[in-house]
């Protein structure tokens, strides 16, 4: 008598929670997700107009922020001389914290601009802001593509994970072969990035041979211009 067939767990669509706030704004419990990729304007105004206004405003207030910090520090120093006021050490700490916060805010401003310019939805607004504010344009030197398209040829279920830190606007990623942890498994070599001329964004192309052993294959993604590492690519091939 034949041995009964051993059962396998079903394949899952995903194996981890969605933590990014952009992706779980749901309309209701069972599916039906509404992503935040298309923010709705509640007053009928075009979104890019709002963004343009926001960007301009952001730059216009940064000096104001610094002045506020200076005033706060000055006021704290005045208070320190009054009876019952904070101990000098705590006062110094507060001032130091305030300065650190402004430093962080500066870094955040740059990061926010990066986010803005990478978003295709927001780009028209950003463009308008730049046109209206040469200073703003000069201050923003980084930006790049984050919209990758995938071309996958495989006869088995395959998960692809690309973790990448975008570089400059002309960034073009490069990946060589992907290797499994098991040395005996042959590497995945039919993997490459190329540029889609229609969208000017990178496309990841991957062929999974039929005989490729199941497992996780990974490799480092580098900037093709500098050869500096900028991310990882991992591919899980199901059995």
């Amino acid at each position: 008598m034949d041995k009964p067939e051993r059962l396998h767990r079903p394949e899952l669509d995903r194996d981890e929670p969605r933590r990014d706030f952009m992706s779980y704004i749901r309309t209701h419990g069972l599916g039906g997700e509404k992503t935040a990729a298309a923010p709705e304007q509640d007053d009928g105004a075009p979104i890019e107009a709002t963004v343009a206004h926001g960007v301009k405003l952001g730059y216009s207030v940064i000096d104001e922020q610094i002045r506020q910090g200076e005033k706060l520090a000055a006021r704290l120093r005045q208070v320190s001389g009054k009876p019952g006021a904070m101990p000098p050490a705590e006062l110094s700490t507060l001032i130091e914290r305030a300065l650190n916060i402004y430093k962080d805010m500066g870094a955040l401003a740059v990061a926010a601009m990066e986010t803005l310019v990478r978003s295709p939805l927001l780009q028209p607004g950003v463009t308008r802001a730049w046109q209206a504010s040469p200073d703003a344009a000069a201050a923003t030197t980084t930006g790049g593509a984050t919209n990758f398209r995938f071309e996958l040829a495989a006869n088995r279920r395959t998960q692809v994970r690309l973790d990448i830190r975008p570089q400059g606007a002309t960034f073009m990623p490069l990946v060589h072969s992907l290797h499994a942890a098991t040395p005996s498994a042959p590497p995945l070599t039919a993997v490459r990035f190329h540029l889609d001329p229609a969208t000017a964004s990178p496309v990841l192309h991957l062929d999974v041979p039929d005989g490729q052993p199941a497992g996780v294959y990974s490799g480092v993604v580098v900037d093709s211009a500098t050869n500096e590492p900028c991310g990882t690519l991992s591919v899980r091939i199901m059995s």
């Binding site: 979104i47 926001g54 952001g58 207030v61 922020q65 402004y102 401003a109 926010a112």
Partner: peptide, 13 residues
């Protein structure tokens, strides 16, 4: 996310 993060951050700060 209809707002630029930095702007909200500025006001919060």
């Amino acid at each position: 996310p209809a707002f630029p993060e930095r702007l909200v951050g500025n006001l919060m700060e």
